[in-house]
């Protein structure tokens, strides 16, 4: 009984720590993105709230919280209100299976640095990422606005398509690690990170992951110059904030997954595991920002062509090659 209660407490503490860390990182990721993007474009970026605009995320949050929450008259109310939560919650949930480091011992108890290590963790990640599509598609549909609807449909089509190369690119990883558990996958990279043996899978994964998170150059669902703000055109206040949060949490999730699958997860010399993971996540995020600052948005047909004509075949070939290599 006592063990059960302490287990629960430990779990809750882990949950709170992870959640707070995620949200804080998300907030400052926004700041980092704006700042870095500005510099990439020879601008200054936020610099009014606090030193270097460091208080900007807080100001933004206050603004979002205090803004009026508008619901369009003709919107499908329930779905409209739920959709943003779907997006941010699924993004947050994916973190449940990401390992942060080796187990540690606290008060004589072994505490794994992961919220829950399950053996089909990888499939869970995919499941949640697919669920995220609902947030986008339903949010766009429920707004009852043409911009939002087109954005939502684009989002759904894009995310569903890119799930395929995303999944296929990980098949070699699973083959190498012989497990769906993320802990096992990290452990399998004990000697070398998989990026060295699977550079193609890495490239496919990163591209697909960026498409999944609808970031430039794949931000067609919210292409502002043709769709206003795409699927979240009609959202305001904190509901818009939830979409926004979802996007930045998603960025971190992607960073974490890239780290776990290809960069050896929390493994690294000198630094403690969680810190290594953090560094890797931030590195991936910074690269994504750099990409955003450099590349223009794709055309819709190009987007689909890359997925179906390049990434999917490449991933399949990669699987076959890996299998072939493993056999001999």
């Amino acid at each position: 009984m006592l063990a059960w209660i302490t287990g629960l407490i430990v779990l809750l503490v882990k949950l709170v720590v992870v959640l707070v860390a995620l949200l804080l990182t998300a907030a400052y990721l926004v700041w980092a993105e704006r700042k870095l993007l500005a510099r990439l474009q020879v601008r200054l970026g936020p610099n009014r709230a606090g030193k270097f605009g460091l208080l900007q995320p807080i100001a933004d949050m206050i603004k979002l919280l205090t803004k009026e929450d508008l619901v369009p008259e003709s919107a499908d109310r329930v779905i409209f209100l739920l959709a943003p939560a779907v997006v941010s919650v699924t993004a947050l949930l994916m973190f449940a299976v990401v390992p942060f480091g080796t187990d540690i011992t606290l008060f004589g108890r072994r505490v794994p640095l992961i919220i829950s290590d399950i053996n089909v963790a990888l499939l869970l990640v995919f499941a949640f990422s697919s669920l995220g599509v609902y947030g986008v598609a339903l949010g766009g549909w429920a707004s009852n606005s043409k911009f939002a609807l087109i954005g939502g449909i684009r989002g759904a089509a894009q995310m569903i398509s890119y799930e395929l190369p995303l999944g296929l690119s990980l098949v070699p990883v699973v083959m190498l690690a012989r497990s769906f558990s993320l802990v096992d996958i990290v452990n399998a990279q004990n000697s070398y990170p998989f990026i060295l043996v699977q550079p193609l899978a890495f490239a496919i994964f990163v591209i697909s992951a960026m498409a999944e998170s609808k970031r430039i150059p794949f931000d067609l669902p919210e292409a502002e110059n043709e769709l206003g703000a795409g699927f979240h055109t009609e959202y305001s206040g904190m509901r818009f904030g939830l979409f926004f949060l979802g996007e930045y949490v998603h960025m971190q999730v992607l960073g974490a997954l890239v780290a776990v699958f290809f960069l050896g997860g929390w493994r690294g010399p000198w630094l403690p595991g969680p810190l290594w993971l953090f560094v890797k996540i931030i590195a991936v995020a910074l690269v994504m920002i750099w990409i955003r600052g450099t590349l223009p948005r794709l055309r819709y047909d190009q987007l689909m062509a890359i997925c179906w004509k390049v990434l999917v075949p490449a991933a399949l070939i990669n699987i076959i090659l890996t299998g072939f290599v493993m056999l001999i």
């Binding site: 500005a38 510099r39 990439l40 020879v42 601008r43 200054l44 750099w290 990409i291 450099t294 590349l295």
Partner: peptide
Amino acid sequence: LGSGFATTAKHLLRRPVT
């Protein structure tokens, strides 16, 4: 692609025009 990334990277070192 590389030249694109290089260009933006170089911008990091330039003085903002704002």
